[in-house]
Amino acid sequence: MRITQGTFSFLPDLTDQQITKQIRYCLDKGWALNVEYTDDPHPRNTYWEMWGVPMFDLRDPAGVLYEVNQCRKAFPDTYIRLSAFDASPGWESIRLSIIVQRPKEEPGFTLERTEHEGRRIGYRTRAYSANKPVGERY
């Protein structure tokens, strides 16, 4: 099951050329870009691992794409996303986030029902891949 989160996630995956254009847009706005990766696809998994520090003083997309490619090389089969931070309000807030790499196979989620007192039913989602330990999921 294809994970959809962040910007343009319902479109087919962006090509490097399209990603470059998005980076250009962010840099023109003065946003800092950050590369993050994870192997836990759960939607509530907000804090992904950081690949290096956010890039604050770049002028050209090539530098960002370089880091994306370095991350892809190091983690060829995980999720990688690119986030853009806007510091203009006085704090860093995310303006844009694109998934730039996903594992070849995404097994998807199972929906589990948990029964509580009365006839109340709770639901939880669990990624099939999360059954394996971190680092061996994909």
């Binding site: 002028r59 050209d60 090539a62 530098g63 370089y66 880091e67």
Partner: peptide
């Protein structure tokens, strides 16, 4: 290596 790469990234495009 990170220091050099940082500079190179900053200079890219120019």
């Amino acid at each position: 290596a990170p220091k050099t790469k940082e500079v190179l990234k900053r200079a890219m495009g120019g």
